[in-house]
Simulated scan of single mutants.
Amino acid sequence: MLNPNTLTETAALLAQMQERDLTLATAESCTGGLIGGALTAIAGSSATVLGGFITYSNGMKQKVLGVPAAMLKEFGAVSEPVARAMAEGALRESGADIAVACTGIAGPGGGGPGKPVGLVHMAAARKGRATIHLRQVFPGDREAVRAATVDAALGLVRQQMEG
């Protein structure tokens, strides 16, 4: 379940984006559409949110977002380069002004050496600006990791909007 403040903060973010005539797209792996769900839970979000990509598998990351197979092989799906490539792919494919992406290990399994359960890489891309990245290891169960990822990812959108 999302943090109760998430929808309030999301509504404020969308209002600011609408005031600036900015559009947004998402590329999600570990959240499986939860970021897009938080955004579209807000009435009028269609003025800002163009759409989203749920790219859970490596094949979809490659096919839909253009993440290079060599990058996935070298760094793994849960990595900074892949998060950046996902955000940039979503920006390119959607035509949005800003795109946010996340890839991680929500658990309860899947973690390993150097990549613990709760590890999430997020990135936000904006036309004409450098893509920004955030690495977090969130505590808690699968639901908590996914909810924390939504909040952090929307924070990256805010940074790209303001920066």
Rank of each mutant, 00 (worst) to 15 (best):
L14D: 13
I98P: 00
L65W: 09
I54Y: 06
P4S: 12
G155M: 03
A69F: 08
L14Y: 11
P108Y: 13
A106I: 02
E9Q: 08
V78H: 02
L2C: 05
G111L: 04
A96R: 09
V157P: 01
D141Q: 05
G66K: 08
R84K: 15
I132Y: 02
P113L: 06
A147T: 07
K63H: 13
L13Q: 11
E162I: 08
L154Q: 05
A70Q: 08
T40M: 05
F53Q: 11
P116I: 03
A130G: 15
C30E: 07
L91N: 10
Q160E: 04
E9M: 10
A70T: 12
L154A: 07
M60T: 15
R142A: 10
T8S: 15
T23V: 08
G140Q: 07
I35Y: 03
E88S: 05
Q159R: 09
G95V: 05
R146C: 00
L156A: 12
A15Q: 14
A41Q: 15
E143S: 14
A125F: 05
A25Q: 08
L134Q: 04
K115A: 09
N5A: 15
G51W: 05
G110F: 01
V137M: 00
V150Y: 05
G104L: 02
G155N: 02
F138A: 01
E19V: 12
G59Y: 11
M86C: 08
N5T: 14
L14E: 13
A27D: 07
Q16D: 13
G33Y: 13
T48C: 07
I42M: 09
V145L: 06
H121T: 03
E9L: 09
A101T: 10
T31W: 01
K63V: 09
S94N: 14
A41F: 04
Q18Y: 10
A153T: 10
G104Q: 04
R126T: 11
S57V: 10
P113Y: 10
G33D: 12
K63M: 06
Q18P: 00
A148K: 10
T10D: 04
K61R: 09
